[in-house]
Amino acid sequence: MTYHLPEFRHPDLPTNELGYTKKQYEGAISTLCAGCGHDSISAGIIQACFELSIEPHKVAKISGIGCSSKTPTYFLGNSHGFNSVHGRMPSVATGANLANRELTYIGVSGDGDSASIGMGQFAHVVRRNLNMLYLVENNGCYGLTKGQDSATADVGSMSKKGAANPFQPVDLCTLAIDLGATFVARSFSGDKDQLVPLIKAAISHSGFAFIDVISPCVTFNNTAASTKSYEFVREHIEATGKTDFIPVRQEITADYDPGFTQEVTLHDGSVIHLYKNDEDLDVRNRLSALQAIHKYKDKGEILTGLLYLDPDCEDLHEIIGSVEKPLRDLDEKALCPGNQALGAINDSLR
């Protein structure tokens, strides 16, 4: 009996610009239930960070409580991590980011952690446009406490217990768009072809990037009458289009109808190409995004892919004009400018 990940990897594994293989981005072996969608998302994050050639020690993973919030243990084992208090991941992420803006922040949360206990924190971190990837692993139930319906469960959806959920769901994507998020996407753990480019784009986005990933709970919420089961999602999924993430500007060779192509250049010069399925959608326009989400929802379908993006936004540091250097790099003189500086501030307020 064993439950160890063998040390060996495929001898022909590709390496990235840093000379690393995917192995350098892995974490401990997962202790989640077999078949949990969260594990696929972890694999997606590993793949995205590998492809972006991010130095693992320049990433901080922050999470709250729940099955989803356990997952940072299972990816990026060479990165910084903070498994915080239930629903309080945004505060810890905000603090960390203000202290050192040079790291890549990946916040992992769940539907309970974000749409219930952490709703208040979620709303405010969106408003402030903190530069981070905020990823919700959304399974519509509380898997860690035997699968009670969560705040994102759809009306009528039935988990393993067999009782239909009577309450209206929270749609974290529309909420985020309304609250001023500057990157909003939805995806599905069972579709890495879509998820990985979205994670890469979200990490490259300078500002608050939110991805709501539907992630079936195989143990409690993968039933025939659940709207968050593998089968239901696969049958009802619609994509805004195919997203290509291109790190450096390069010529696009794919042959798509121009009316259906939207190209967005991010702050760092990377480019997102969206090959849209719907001509009406404009991912630069909040109203268009909200309309699209509701339009598909009314049809009983789940709209996934990139929904909204504002690449020219100011993030929290720019808004409040905070110091550019990480606090740990500031010397004593900069951190404690002395009485004279305090006096000057006081005078300016008189």
Binding site: L5, P6, F8, R9, H10, L13, I29, S30, A34, G35, C36, G37, D39, S40, S42, A43, S189, G190, K192, P216, V218, N222, Y230, E231, R234
Partner: peptide, 15 residues
Amino acid sequence: CIECDACVDICPMDC
């Protein structure tokens, strides 16, 4: 198979 990708994600050799 429900195509959850769990095997793909865990396989150490990417088989």
